[in-house]
Design a protein around this nucleic acid. Structure first.
Lengths: 212, 212
DNA sequence: TTGCATCCTGACCGTATGGTCAGCTTTCAG
DNA sequence: CTGAAAGCTGACCATACGGTCAGGATGCAA
């Protein structure tokens, strides 16, 4: 019995319900897109009556915004790997690992994020123009320094970042395609490890940063 | 006056209207997703009354299916580059060029395709299990042969393909993000060329196929 | 225990959307 | 020239969806 007794404190109720709604919403938005998602479906998945959703989130847009913001946080968090590193091998390896872990553990989030961007970022445009831009500029600077210090070949930092994003997120966003091509089965632990290793090897070798 | 005289032949009318509808649909589906797209919007963009859409395409699903199939054709066509090539440098270079050209000229199509796959390929599942699988297996075999012949390092062919798809399609699917990070301007000719060169260089070097 | 704020929800509403259809116009084969 | 087939469309319909609300249930501070 993991189910605790009924009486919950107010705080807990709020927290748990919001969490359940956000989780359900993430999944439904990922599977159906914003337009295809319905509050009823999200409510059912969260195990709550629809009207209760509107108690916590006034509108569909507000709920969506919360979901997308959550994802953006996670996305940015993976960034820290970069800063701690002393060179491209450490930094990029760690970043690839982190992003692949997100693709594996948070595929729905990744899809919602992809969808949001594909549709022109109607909700997150301001974040992209501020936070994301700053983050990117910072990393570009780091990569530039690595190049100057001769730690890697002179590759355009921006295109390198795009490549890292694309390659890692692909395993979440196009997970269904990958599964289909994998005989309908999701990737095993081993296959995920191989994926990571392949990406790291090709990119690190490709930018001339591999020690060997 | 490029506008020809009114009287059109039946055949032309049909062809032109279908083309206009398909084009409008591709754009609207790309911008709003299947659920968010409305027949009215597509009709307006195509310059036709809504009822006329239903004359050519019975349902929204049927229209969507046509759009997605069109895209899939283009997607597969880029494949030919692979077969003609005698080695990874030629083959992969040409494939990257072709796919980048698609990303640039057909971003809406790419987005619809991405959306379709992200949502679990409800319409194209059968194609993925037949045509796409066969195509992929064929290319995997080619890459394997290149490896055996010592023309490139032993990289997992599947993960290499995913990397090619991801990297090239990213420029269409996440074009809005890239534009935003590019100061709100779309990439110039020069930037597209640099993108291609960067990708080719990193990947070809990464798999040990660069002549130099 | 009491009073109040928070939490919950079935029933309801207005609107937007996919789809239909009767009847019109236009093309064209014979 | 004529009739039938193809093309076209305004008006209409049923439904599904986002959102509202009145009023009941519940936790909790005092």
């Amino acid at each position: 019995m993991t189910e605790p007794t009924r009486p919950m404190r107010r705080q807990d109720i709020r927290r748990e319900n919001e969490k359940a709604i956000l989780l359900a919403a993430e999944k439904v938005f990922a599977e159906a897109g914003f337009g295809g998602a319905t509050m009823q479906l999200i409510a059912d998945l969260a195990g709550l009556p629809k009207a209760n959703l509107h108690y916590y989130f006034a509108t569909k847009e507000e709920l969506y915004r919360s979901v997308v913001q959550n994802i953006f946080e996670i996305w940015l968090q993976a960034a820290n790997c970069f800063d701690a590193a002393r060179g491209p091998v450490d930094g990029i390896s760690a970043y690839i690992d982190a992003k692949m872990e997100i693709s594996r553990r948070h595929p729905d989030g990744s899809k919602v994020w992809a969808s949001e961007v594909m549709h022109g970022a109607p909700v997150l445009q301001d974040y992209m123009e501020s936070t994301l831009r700053e983050w990117t500029d910072g990393r570009v600077e780091i990569i530039r320094r690595w190049i100057e210090e001769g730690k890697m070949d002179p590759v355009d930092p921006r295109h390198l970042l795009y490549m890292l994003w694309a390659t890692t997120q692909h395993y979440a966003d196009f997970g269904h395609q990958i599964e289909t091509l994998n005989g309908g089965k999701s990737l095993s632990d081993r296959q995920w490890r191989e994926a990571k290793e392949n990406i790291k090897r090709v990119i690190l070798t490709g930018i001339g940063a591999q020690p060997a």
